[in-house]
């Protein structure tokens, strides 16, 4: 009897402690933020800087890909999903089926997909059609000679296509913009895990062509000037052309919330769109929205 009483007391004490704990926790609001690997670095920078602005809000950032982030939003695991593409019809549909409010899209930055080649490659410009001929299923361009280019140090002039794995938002965006709504990639491209791998590989491979978000390009690579159609003037990828939409392979980077953002999430998004938040976008190599 005494024994059971004691256990009951202990249990009570434990419960009280637990309650106290959780109440002290709730002073600090935690925002869960997950999604696009393209956005993950800038999202982390935002989260870090925001903790200095508002110490009572902690933003937890993780990557995994746009699809993963949106799936987590639908499953109620995150407050804000990061995406480097717009939400798909099916994703909107599955939100509706889960009885959720419609997702609201916030354009937080802009990005251009830079097509790049090895620094020794003499290519100066390519059209979207030529890129489709190189990357697209059924495209007949398999050597640099087919494009009228001679690349020094490249065995057999074979074009080594570097692409991304199918889970990447950059992959989906490139496919949509360059290969068309129903287009597919030609088999046999080297599909890398991340943009950094693409950059590394192209830096060391004279025959290679690759693509990534603007933030990853470096001086050792040669960015290709891209024209929307054969014979048109080409546009170099940079902050102005990406923001104005003149560069043919530019996109918005988005954050999604369920319904209009409220409370801490709204404050956070407002801060991201403020000059302080957008300065971080520029530092990370992307293009600010305003």
């Amino acid at each position: 009897m005494v024994q059971t009483d004691r256990t009951a007391y202990l249990l009570c004490a434990g419960l009280i402690a637990l309650a106290a704990c959780s109440s002290s926790n709730s002073d600090r609001t935690v925002l869960q933020n997950k999604g696009s690997d393209t956005l993950v670095n800038v999202a982390q920078a935002w989260a870090e800087n925001y903790s200095r602005v508002k110490s009572d809000v902690a933003v937890v950032v993780s990557g995994g890909g746009s699809g993963t982030g949106i799936a987590a939003l639908i499953n109620g695991k995150v407050d804000i999903a990061n995406a480097s593409r717009k939400m798909k019809f099916e994703e909107h549909e599955s939100m509706r089926q889960n009885g959720l409010k419609a997702a609201v899209q916030h354009t937080v930055a802009r990005d251009a997909i830079v097509v790049f080649v090895h620094e020794d490659n003499p290519v100066s410009q390519l059209s979207v059609q030529q890129l489709a001929c190189v990357y697209g299923e059924g495209g007949s361009c398999s050597t640099w000679t087919d494009l009228g280019i001679e690349v020094p140090g490249c065995a057999k002039q074979e074009i080594i296509r570097i692409s991304r794995q199918s889970n990447s938002g950059t992959y989906v965006f490139f496919r949509e913009t360059v290969l068309g709504e129903t287009g597919d990639f030609k088999l046999g491209s080297r599909d890398m895990q991340g943009s950094k791998d693409v950059v590394d590989l192209v830096t060391h491979t004279p025959c290679a062509i690759g693509y990534s978000g603007m933030g990853y390009a470096n001086e050792k690579l040669k960015s290709v000037c891209v024209s929307a159609n054969d014979g048109e003037a080409c546009v170099s990828p940079n902050a102005e052309t990406a923001a104005s939409g003149a560069y043919p392979i530019a996109r918005g980077l988005y954050m999604y919330t369920i319904g209009e953002a409220e409370g801490a999430a709204k404050d956070y998004l407002d801060w991201i769109l403020s000059p302080a938040g957008q300065a971080i976008v520029t530092q990370s190599g992307f293009v600010p929205v305003n």
């Binding site: 699809g67 993963t68 799936a71 794995q165 889970n167 599909d191």
Partner: peptide, 8 residues
């Protein structure tokens, strides 16, 4: 390994 993590 590359694809399973991302599929529904």
């Amino acid at each position: 390994a590359a694809e399973l993590g991302e599929t529904a």
